[in-house]
Nucleic acid binder design. Structure first.
Lengths: 101, 101
DNA sequence: TTGACATATCGACAGCGGTCGATATAATAA
DNA sequence: TTATTATATCGACCGCTGTCGATATGTCAA
């Protein structure tokens, strides 16, 4: 069962270039915080990445798994579709059937 | 043909409570700026509403039509679905077929 | 042309949020 | 225990943006 979605919170969560890059890197793969930092290639440092991951986690956009002293993150694709579905239901009702949301 | 979509810009555009309220009011109906102000019931004033409408217009989320000295706005539902489609393609590829985006 | 009305633009202010360096916390290894 | 590694948290800074009042622009009527 999905937690209730606030479309404003969802939009705020993804309304940042760095966070969307992180989401791309976490799509279909589990990465540690350190690996995400590497992927971003020096654009931001570790505390900043942790900060962004927390924001994504707060709105349920990532899954987290602890293993030893590392934390693995991956994108919650289901939640993305769920939130996008709510956006379409809210702001594109004429297209609702077309997308089955 | 749709203008190219930057998912970050789209997210920023809808990442505001007031703007989402405006979008709701403009869904399936044409309203003047003054009517939008009324719908928001004193929460914000006319210049602020104009400011938000411009932001929405800049990313193609509203259609505008001038008539006399009034400007009518309505939500561009097609663009909403288009942007949400791109979000799903980018961040939920495993669900892409399911939603036909 | 003048006046009234509808909307857009401007300048200023304040709060939010992205970023950083420094440090705390937590887990493992020696 | 102590040291090391991985991540989270803290405090500060700064740019961005939502909001406002004032004013400009533009359109119509008289």
């Amino acid at each position: 069962m999905q937690r209730e979605v606030d479309t404003v919170e969802f939009a705020k969560a993804i309304a940042d270039e760095t966070r969307q890059q992180i989401m791309k890197h976490l799509c279909c793969v589990w990465l540690t915080v350190g690996e995400v930092v590497e992927k971003l290639d020096g654009r931001v440092n570790q505390p900043t990445v942790s900060h962004h991951l927390k924001k994504l986690e707060d709105v349920g956009l990532v899954h987290v798994r602890q293993e030893g002293r590392q934390r693995f993150y991956t994108l919650n694709q289901r939640r993305v579709t769920f939130c996008c579905g709510k956006l379409i239901r809210s702001f594109a009702p004429d297209y609702r059937d077309e997308y089955g949301v």
